[in-house]
């Protein structure tokens, strides 16, 4: 009689096919969590349906495209500090005090912005990219290095991690931004890979 390993027999006897099914489901979810698209890949629903396509999209010949604003026009702190920062409501109102939108949906969304500005409260944007608490990421040094290496303006380096935001109606996370993702790039540019560079 061939020798049967008890490690296989015990769950089979105990749970029969059901045990295997539970195991299979568990393996599926674990594999999905590890290899699948990251959480938040659908992108959160924002309090105001802000279209990056209209603001940052490339302008077309017939005037239908976007405004072609560079990323740093609104995300002003990206070259100065750790956080890229979302602009203040006042900054939106520089234009939107006059610009009211052409379509009905746009007008409704811009009205939300104007109401917020009247109350004097910030807009509670939902975060799309979030790193764990034990990771310290600084935007300015990454933007400066990439723009120097590739010989492009700082605004053109954003797509390295954030994808083609100017074509996204709803912004979604395009890279996993797990540690392997960071380290791959750090190795490629011979940037330091010491733990205490990011974890402290």
């Amino acid at each position: 009689m061939p020798r049967v390993r008890p490690s296989i027999v015990v769950p089979l006897v105990l749970f029969g096919g059901g045990g295997l099914a539970v195991l299979g489901v568990a393996v599926f979810f674990l594999a999905n969590a590890w290899f699948g698209v990251p959480v938040g890949a659908q992108g959160p629903v924002q309090p105001i349906a802000f279209p990056h396509t209209v603001h940052a999209g490339a302008p077309a010949e017939d005037g239908t495209g976007g405004l072609g604003l560079s990323c740093t026009f609104c995300h002003r702190n990206v070259e100065q500090g750790a956080a890229a920062t979302v602009p203040a409501v006042e900054q939106c109102m520089f234009c939107h005090a006059a610009v009211g939108g052409t379509t009905e949906t746009a007008q409704a969304e811009i009205q939300k912005l104007r109401d917020t500005a009247k109350v004097g409260e910030p807009i509670l944007w939902k975060r799309v990219y979030r790193l764990p608490d034990h990771v310290q990421f600084v935007h300015d040094v990454h933007v400066r290095l990439l723009s120097q290496q590739q010989g492009v303006t700082p605004s053109e380096t954003c797509s390295t991690c954030h994808g083609q935001v100017e074509t996204m109606i709803k912004v979604t996370q395009v890279r996993s931004l797990k540690m392997g993702d960071c380290v791959d790039c750090h190795r490629q540019y011979t940037a330091p890979t010491d733990c205490a560079i990011c974890h402290y």
């Binding site: 733990c195 205490a196 974890h199 402290y200």
Partner: peptide, 15 residues
């Protein structure tokens, strides 16, 4: 916990 090349004894919390 390990030693880095700056003379620091680093504690990596996530490890």
């Amino acid at each position: 916990t390990y030693h880095n090349n700056e003379g620091l004894n680093v504690q990596v919390y996530n490890r």
